[in-house]
């Protein structure tokens, strides 16, 4: 009888899926001995949170670069010598951070309008209970203004969340990249090499990414 078992004993980020054979012992208990297959899928989406639980020994963690990348994406890559990646991470994070700031300002302004209209509308019952006469036109206009402001706030909320999600994603990928990449060794990787033979001269240009 075959079954699928998923367990993670040391590394929660990796699910070790073992295909085994279920046996029934003489006392009636089931055992799970006998492996027939082995799969190791990676969960990339939760990389940042998962990385917290990863033992440092399993990765080539460069603490100085990691700390820099946590401060701002791309800084750690630049520290490692990967300048193109640093520019990509830094530029994307800068764009996302600018988007978060602008969309947050935009959203907060609209949320305040929506909440003000909401409070005004919810105060009508109290005013009516106190004997104050209120025009149905004023109530309808306030309700329409509240609905319009709330719908606009909903839209701006989604835009703000998009930029927040983008920023978090860039941060996460940036941290994962720092965790799995090694510092660029400029000494061993000669950028320009010239090899001279009897019948030819070979010029080699090395690019680092």
């Amino acid at each position: 009888m075959h079954f699928l078992e998923i367990h993670s004993n040391i590394l929660p980020s990796f699910a070790y899926m073992q295909l085994g054979t279920m046996k029934v012992n003489s006392d009636g208990m089931m055992s799970t001995k006998g492996k027939h297959g082995f799969m190791r899928p990676r969960i990339v989406a939760a990389a940042v949170l998962v990385a917290v639980f990863l033992p440092g020994q399993a990765l080539a963690v460069d603490n100085a670069s990691l700390w820099r990348s946590l401060l701002f994406p791309g800084v750690g890559q630049a520290h490692q010598g990967h300048y193109k990646k640093a520019a990509i991470f830094g530029g994307t994070a800068l764009l996302a951070a600018t988007g978060v700031f602008l969309s947050s300002v935009n959203y907060t302004e609209q949320a305040n309008k929506a909440n003000a209209a909401r409070n005004e509308f919810l105060f009508f019952p109290t005013q009516l209970m106190n004997g104050e006469v209120i025009s149905i036109t004023e109530i309808d206009e306030t309700y329409a203004r509240m609905v319009s402001a709330t719908e606009e706030a909903d839209d701006r909320f989604k835009v703000r969340n998009f930029f927040i999600g983008a920023l978090i994603t860039v941060y996460a990928i940036n941290v994962v990249d720092i965790l799995i990449s090694k510092p660029h060794d400029t000494e061993t990787a000669q950028r320009i090499q010239i090899e001279v033979n009897r019948d030819r001269v070979m010029l080699t240009r090395t690019f680092g990414f």
Binding site: V52, L70, S104, T108, A111, R118, I164
Partner: peptide, 22 residues
């Protein structure tokens, strides 16, 4: 440090203002 950064991100995101429902 990573844990601190992750928690900080979550706190910042959850602490953002939210408009009330209709």
């Amino acid at each position: 440090r990573i844990l601190f950064a992750a928690v900080l991100l979550i706190v910042v995101v959850s602490a953002c203002a939210r408009h009330e429902d209709l």
